[in-house]
Amino acid sequence: MLKSLMKSKLFWPIVILVIILLINLFFDRGFFQIEVRNGRLAGSLVDILNRGAPLMLISIGMTLVIATKGIDLGVGSVIALSGAIAATTVADASEGSLAPLFAAIALAIFVCMVAGAWNGFLVSRIGVQPIVATLILMVAGRGVAQLVTQGQITTVYYDPYTFIGGGYLLGLPFSIFIVVAVLLLALFVTRKTAMGLFIESVGSNPEASRLSGINSKNILMMVYIFSGFCAAIGGLILSSNVASADGNNAGLWYELDAILAVVIGGTSLMGGRFYLMGTIIGALIIQSLTTTIYSIGIPPETNMVVKAIVVLIVCLLQSPEFRSKVFGSFKAKKAVESEDDKGVTLS
């Protein structure tokens, strides 16, 4: 029982998350306390969920992209773009009507999905490597976002807009509901339709998938569009949180955090199997790490160093060469075999 539990891809991420939370408990006895203030749940755990919402969303999209052996470097810029579009749309809206809110959301999501489609087009039709293809949007997207906001930090004086990221529903932050909804959507599409199977199959062996009659181009296209969709919503939350849009700085580093969350969650950068729940836990680990560092008084600047070390450890653990060097001979044999594969395919 314990063995099968340990074999589960979620085991180690959960252990790490629990350890981080326990460290917090050690420094702050009230860490796990959740109380009701003004009919709203409050406490550090709720805080982590709330603050981690944008990262969780973006990581969900990134998970599917990485499962196809791709990567989406453009999400940070798309976040900025989404916030910029929405904020500009509602900037001067009158309080009375909700129509501007929905218009803003629809417009932001639409434009960001077009941006995703652009990435998907370059990757699947032109055949550009994903890193290279999405680099374009990473550079130019932020420029476009600034173009939308005219280089200013656009402030929103339209209250309904702040509900997206700051509102409460049934005593819980509204952003948590958004995450759950998107997660359920992703889980439904990938586990209740064949989409998940196709994504894993295209990521694991594209040629074999083609010969099995799967249209990998369309799959790639959809995955990048979905990533754009997730980034759009994440961008809405982030911009709504601060009731403004900053084309230059919104969503900075988010692509990297998202990749990190996906990798911690057990999805390999080499594509194939993906773990949406693992990704969620990965994103929560990153968020609680940040919270912890703040709460126990380590300089917050350490955060990046810790992240760097975590990335390296996770990658090393995924590397067959490293495992064969560190752990025994059984795995070493596997490495030899994979070396042989290379030789055979190239000769």
């Binding site: 894993e200 199959s201 062996n205 074999a208 998938s209 010969l211 194939g272 594969d341």
Partner: peptide
């Protein structure tokens, strides 16, 4: 190896792939 199996998937998933396609 190159054109047949999807290494990361199970026997079941490999079997139904073409039909699902």
């Amino acid at each position: 190896k190159a054109e047949g199996i999807i290494p990361e998937l199970t026997i079941r998933e490999n079997m139904i792939l073409a039909m699902q396609g």
